[in-house]
């Protein structure tokens, strides 16, 4: 369902966001994309909807080869994948119902049918009573549910959730995770990026571990943790070294800039 082969991403600054990442997520699977901030989780999700392109490698999502996909087909790809964005991206000037309705409108569903389906999905995620409220009027958990509703309203085969429990308290986070679990049990492939160790541990699902843009291990729900094929220690060290050199360079530049300013101030 989702295949990444030797995917690397070099940003304009020269820093690698991802280095030779390869993994597969099967149809109907629930997988966690795990790693600390800056490990490349969001970059992978952004690549899966072709918000950013990899520098090298191959990405296949369903029947779509992301690299070879013509630009005019990108909207079609995005309609087939439900995404819960890290910052939710709910439109602030539209009600929850209108936000949920939007993907249906984009897909050309008739307004009557779209309204019915939007209400149905809001009912399923448990926020139908807030349908006519604006995002700003809802709590964090309710907004998260709204984003999930919007991601699911077109019944996608794949759901990508980027830190959906990020800003939530434990109870609300669990409600969201259980909702995603139910969605997965209904047949949707779920790839959830998170760094919440508690959830990962308790849910006991497949884990794809990243660190500084490198895949450092995978663990299936029944297996013991095993290091990734691309997780050659030399490679990881090299990537970490690159990262450290970049950080060191940035600190030096900052120091120089402060010294210059200080000297200039003294002269004046």
């Amino acid at each position: 369902m989702i295949i990444l082969e030797n995917v690397s991403k070099k940003f304009g600054t020269g820093v690698y966001g991802l280095t030779n990442v390869s993994f597969t997520v099967e149809k109907g699977e629930f997988a966690f994309l795990v790693g600390p901030t800056g490990s490349g989780k969001t970059t992978i999700i952004r690549m899966l909807i072709r918000e950013v392109m990899p520098t090298q490698g191959t990405i296949v999502v369903g029947n779509w080869n992301i690299i070879r996909l013509p630009g005019r087909k990108v909207p079609d790809l995005r309609k087939k994948i439900g995404v819960v964005f890290q910052d939710l991206k709910l439109l602030p000037d539209r009600t929850i119902l209108e936000n949920t309705y939007l993907p249906l409108e984009l897909s050309g569903v008739s307004s009557k049918e779209a309204m019915k389906r939007a209400e149905d999905i809001l009912g399923k995620v448990g926020i139908l009573e807030h349908a006519n409220k604006f995002p700003v009027q809802l709590s964090g958990g309710e907004r998260q549910r709204s984003a999930i509703a919007r991601a699911l309203v077109l019944s996608p085969e794949i759901l990508l959730a980027d830190e959906p429990t990020g800003d939530l308290d434990d109870d609300t986070a669990w409600e969201i995770v259980n909702l995603l679990k139910e969605i997965n049990e209904a047949g949707t492939t779920v790839l959830m990026a998170t760094h919440n160790a508690n959830i990962i541990k308790k849910l006991n699902k497949r884990i794809i571990k990243l660190n500084k843009g490198v895949l450092i291990g995978e663990k299936n729900d029944k297996d013991e943790e095993k290091p990734s094929a691309s997780d050659a220690p030399e490679e990881q060290k090299e990537q970490e070294k690159k990262h450290e050199v970049h950080e060191h360079k940035k600190t030096e530049e900052k120091k120089e800039s402060i010294t210059d300013k200080f000297e200039q101030a003294l002269k004046e």
């Binding site: 909807i49 918000e51 005019r72 909207p75 079609d76 790809l77 995005r78 309609k79 995404v83 964005f85 991206k89 709910l90 439109l91 000037d93 939007l102 993907p103 984009l106 897909s107 919007r150």
Partner: peptide, 15 residues
Amino acid sequence: GDIETMRLIGAGSWY
């Protein structure tokens, strides 16, 4: 911001 969101959930250029 809204335009970026709409594009990310599948809005075409003409929409």
